[in-house]
């Protein structure tokens, strides 16, 4: 049974802050920061936006593109690492916001930035087993970056949703391959407002080892090489890492660039690589072969081999595109950024 993507939706908030604006507030050299991360600006949710609201927006567009009735959905899984409630699911809010039926498997998933892609893998299993007809996988984050720390330059805001099923596919997910280990590269302790990096562990032992492990494992199992793919999309904590991992794997820049969004909206964590996929789906021709590799700290990757179908082009314009949302922006200064992100501590809040 072929299983894959029936519809997709994305959401990027309208507000943006430039890297230069943040650097000026903290006395950093903006050129040096931009050179380090290749991030020009990042998306900032308004004071009334959070991973729940963005998940609803992305899921509504995904349902529209899929052209299915909400009552046909049998599962909704939300991957996030920035839940507004420590205890109270996003997925149950989605049930009522999207008017799904009550007989829906629903859960929030957490594995740093990887859980949204685990939602997809789990839904593929439920669809293949016949337990559900369609499922919604969401990756949504409005994560934290401590003011004055380098993470603040890249932590963005966004969401993406995929309808997974076995009929009317716009893209078939032909193969998946996981790679995970206990690697302490990045974490946020319970009750802590901001995450921390594990010294030099972010790059080689974490991001590169897991993404390369998953990508190579998938290609070896399939007997495929980088030349066999039209697009390669990787998790994007900044714009340097996905380009470098592509070089290490042997993918040319032109196959990686279409799926990079971090330079304009920042790292959207659980939406990151999957938002890149949404952008690629907007331009890919039928029959395109796409490699997607997600990454979550802690650490793990999921690799996907995806092939688009003839149904893809007709679904693109049925809802807001990533391309449109990248253009639809209002710049704010650092003071409004602090206010919108609720970083200013207030007694009367």
């Amino acid at each position: 049974m072929a299983v894959g993507i029936v519809g997709w939706g994305a959401y990027i908030p309208r507000y943006r802050i430039k890297t230069r604006e943040i650097a000026e507030a903290w006395g950093d050299d903006a050129l040096r920061i931009r050179d380090m991360y290749l991030v020009e600006e990042k998306a900032v949710g308004y004071i009334d936006e959070d991973p729940v609201t963005m998940a609803v927006e992305a899921s509504r567009d995904a349902l529209t593109r899929a052209g299915i009735a909400p009552s046909e959905v049998g599962a909704v899984f939300a991957g996030t690492e920035s839940k507004p409630y420590a205890v109270k699911p996003i997925s149950s809010i989605l049930i009522d916001a999207l008017n799904l039926k009550r007989q829906v498997y629903s859960v929030d998933m957490e594995f740093a930035c990887k859980a949204g892609s685990d939602a997809i893998v789990n839904l593929m299993g439920l669809v293949k087993s016949g337990l559900i007809k369609y499922g919604i996988a969401v990756g949504t984050d409005s994560s934290q970056g401590e003011p004055g720390e380098h993470l603040e330059y890249t932590v963005g805001t966004g969401a993406v949703a995929y309808i997974i099923g076995s009929t009317n596919l716009v893209a078939e997910i032909k193969h998946t391959y996981p790679f995970a280990s206990d690697t302490p590269d990045f974490w946020r302790r319970d009750g802590s407002p901001y995450p921390v990096h594990g010294e030099g562990f972010t790059g080689e032992p974490a991001y590169f080892r897991h993404i390369i492990g998953a990508a190579k494992g998938l290609m070896e199992e399939l007997g495929m090489k980088p030349n066999d793919f039209d697009y390669a999309i990787f998790h994007q904590p900044n714009a340097r890492f996905p380009v470098r991992v592509a070089q290490m794997l042997g993918f040319p820049l032109e196959k990686v660039k279409p799926g990079i969004v971090v330079d304009l909206i920042g790292n959207t964590y659980n939406a990151s690589a999957l938002l890149g996929l949404a952008k690629v789906l907007e331009e890919a021709k039928p029959g395109s072969r796409i490699l997607v590799v997600t990454f979550g700290s802690g650490a793990g990757s999921n690799a996907f081999y995806i092939e688009t179908t003839d149904l893809l082009p007709s679904r693109v314009k049925l809802a807001r595109t990533v391309g449109e949302m990248l253009e639809d922006k209002v710049y704010i200064d650092y003071s409004l950024y602090l206010k919108y992100r609720r970083i200013i501590r207030m007694i009367h809040g």
Binding site: Y46, D48, E49, D50, V52, T53, V56, R60, A97
Partner: peptide, 19 residues
Amino acid sequence: VFRRVKEDSDYGIIYYGFK
């Protein structure tokens, strides 16, 4: 659009709704 409308302090419920 679907947004936060208000919330009961830092510990209470978050009220979502349309805007």
